[in-house]
Computed example of a mutant assay.
Amino acid sequence: MYLKFDKKENILIITLSGELDHNSAEEVRVKIDDRIDRDNIEKAVMDFSGVTFMDSSGIGAVIGRYKKLSNKGGRLCVAEPSKNVNRIFELAGLYKVIKNYNTVDEAVRCI
Rank of each mutant, 00 (worst) to 15 (best):
E26D: 15
G50K: 02
V28N: 02
E42K: 15
K68P: 05
I59F: 01
L94G: 07
K72S: 13
E26Y: 08
K43P: 04
D34P: 00
R109G: 02
K68L: 13
V62S: 04
V51K: 05
C77R: 00
I32W: 08
V104Q: 15
G58N: 11
T52Y: 08
A107C: 11
F5C: 01
E26M: 02
K8R: 14
A44N: 04
V62C: 11
V28S: 05
K43L: 14
L3S: 06
S70M: 14
F48Q: 04
E90P: 09
D37S: 15
I63Q: 09
L3I: 10
N10A: 07
I98R: 11
H22V: 03
G60R: 02
L3V: 05
C110D: 15
S82V: 01
L3H: 02
E80F: 00
E26T: 03
Y66A: 13
A107V: 10
G93V: 06
S57Q: 01
E90Y: 07
D47M: 02
L94Q: 01
I59W: 03
N71F: 05
N23P: 03
G64Q: 05
V108G: 12
E27V: 02
M1G: 07
L3A: 06
F53R: 10
G74W: 00
I11Y: 14
N84P: 10
P81S: 02
G58H: 09
S56I: 01
D47C: 00
N86W: 00
E27Y: 01
S57V: 00
L16N: 03
K99E: 14
E9S: 13
A107K: 08
D6Y: 04
